[in-house]
Write a protein that binds this DNA or RNA. Structure first.
Length: 249
DNA sequence: CACCAGGCCGTGC
DNA sequence: GCACGGCATGGT
């Protein structure tokens, strides 16, 4: 089973990628435009690291398939999906935007943030702004992007950016505490940041979908059932449920 | 018109 | 500690 790039880039862990007309995918990462397509095997050193190609996902899929038959179904259907190595700051901002929101609108707000405060790379490709580029931004500026009540949360994250970015390398507990000290970051957003921004694989974000999944498909169980692959399991179940529905068997 | 979206905050008990 | 309503915006 080969690496499924589209499933990996568009399963809700990243808001940076767009579909192009020629069925390739593009994103601005580290001030450069990156374009890849399904089936591609050779990548730049940066993308190899970003796509987490060194980790043995095939073994993880085999081990996870032994844990539970429903999880095995999800893996068989979704194929090999990776947990990206994303920039921590971009993950923080993206998942603050995510609360009580839908993925289409999160992507649009994320893109609008880059166009408004980021650096133009070429044509309509903009890098996502670093915290230093957001210094001096007001709550009103943020509201004009359309982020709504999340504006004050984003402002707090911008003001605390140095401390937030210092969580890289800390224990998961300490990272969680510092993150949840930020306004607008609760248990779920913190979990997403630790899984997708810090690559802590044993974190299991519980959004409305995953809560429903656990209740209907895994009654009486919690995330420890999927150990030590909680994070990956969560991605599979999330993607599977969203493409497939939850109510059917 | 309602209700929902990768939730969190403040209040009240 | 848990339950509840409010919150900006856009889609169905």
């Amino acid at each position: 089973m080969s690496f499924m790039i589209e499933n990996t880039l568009f399963c809700g862990q990243s808001f940076s990628w767009r579909h192009n007309d020629d069925s390739t995918f593009s994103a601005v990462l580290e001030n450069k435009i990156h374009t890849i397509k399904e089936g591609q095997r050779e990548f730049s050193p940066f993308l190899n690291s970003y796509l987490d190609n060194e980790y043995n996902y095939k073994d993880a899929m085999i081990e996870m398939s032994k844990i539970d038959p429903i999880l095995k179904n999800a893996i068989d259907e979704c194929g090999e999906i990776h947990i990206l190595n994303q920039d921590l700051w971009e993950t923080v901002f993206g998942f603050i935007l995510s609360q009580n929101n839908n993925i289409k609108r999160i992507e649009r707000l994320y893109d609008r943030t880059a166009r408004t405060f980021g650096t133009k790379i070429k044509d309509d490709y903009y890098s996502f702004p670093r915290p230093s580029q957001l210094k001096g931004v007001t709550e009103k500026d943020l509201r004009e992007l359309g982020v709504g009540f999340r504006a004050s949360y984003l402002l707090d994250a911008i003001n605390r950016a140095d401390e937030i970015l210092s969580i890289d390398g800390m224990s998961d507990d300490k990272a969680d505490k510092i993150l949840q000290d930020t306004r607008g970051i609760g248990p779920k957003v913190s979990a997403c940041i630790r899984l997708f921004g810090l690559h802590n694989f044993e974190v299991f974000p519980k959004d409305v979908w995953v809560k429903k999944i656990m209740k209907t498909w895994f009654p009486g169980k919690d995330e420890s059932y999927f150990a030590p692959y909680q994070g990956l399991a969560q991605e599979y179940l999330f993607l599977y449920a969203r493409t497939h529905g939850i109510e059917d068997e």
